[in-house]
């Protein structure tokens, strides 16, 4: 029987937002953690490490996120691991985000002037200390705006988790649409909710960029 879109349907969509946000946060934290190592690997002085990090980035940037989610979800089943859509989505998005954040942060690390690396090296600091005390604190400033910008991408990317059966905002939209057959209305509202989530972050990113672009004193 066909229901029409009402207050309850709207509440159902809203309550699914928490899963979109939860997945975003987990993928961001996971992606940031792994991504830091990817970025460090990309800027390492050891060639095999650099090549490995580069290959990792190329792999995840060169294939569709949806395929990555499929491979994690179905791949785990093939290998005999029982993986629910939640874990598969979180893992897939983490891997994907780590590659993109790694590449963004590589650029930020390399934006720190050469003289800073040289001065720290000349003082006897080795790679870990040099990174931790001299380069990363300066790279972080450059990294904040593009990282917030990437978070917007990530929130939108979580919608693909709907396809492996994880019930977040987009999947909730599909469910409501299957019951109401009002696709334009339902998916219009879903899109509007994504917009409400992402727009403030885009604004924030632009503002941070302006702030950090101001001449430092």
């Amino acid at each position: 029987m066909i229901r029409s879109f009402g207050y309850n349907e709207f509440l159902f969509l809203l309550s699914a937002v928490q899963w979109t946000l939860a997945l975003s946060v987990i993928a961001f934290i996971g992606g940031a953690t792994v991504g830091l190592f990817v970025a460090l690997g990309r800027t390492s002085t050891i060639k095999p490490v650099r090549l490995l990090a580069t290959g990792y980035i190329q792999l995840f940037q060169g294939t569709p996120l949806l395929m990555q989610l499929f491979l994690v979800f179905f791949g785990a089943t093939v290998m005999g691991i029982d993986m629910n859509p939640w874990a598969a989505a979180a893992l897939g998005l983490t891997l994907n985000a780590s590659a993109f954040l790694g590449e963004i942060w590589r650029g930020c690390i390399q934006a720190v002037p050469r003289g800073q690396w040289e001065a720290a090296s000349a003082l006897g600091l080795r790679f870990p200390g040099l990174m931790r005390y001299v380069i990363l604190p300066q790279a972080v400033k450059v990294a904040v705006p593009p990282t917030v910008g990437f978070l917007v991408q990530l929130i939108k990317s979580t919608s693909l988790a709907a396809i492996i059966g994880f019930t977040e905002l987009t999947r909730a939209g599909q469910i409501v649409n299957n019951a109401t057959f009002q696709p334009f209305l339902v998916f219009g509202i879903v899109a509007a909710i994504y917009f409400v989530l992402c727009w403030p972050l885009s604004l924030l990113s632009a503002r941070l960029e302006q702030r950090y672009a101001a001449p430092a004193r």
């Binding site: 800073q116 001065a119 000349a122 003082l123 006897g124 600091l125």
Partner: peptide
Amino acid sequence: RREVGMVFQQFNLFPHLTVLQNCMLAPMKV
């Protein structure tokens, strides 16, 4: 490197640290 100091044309001080912290970093961490 521990025994050889170097002064650069562009100074290359660490801008995120104070003058004192610039001077303390290597003795502490190296």
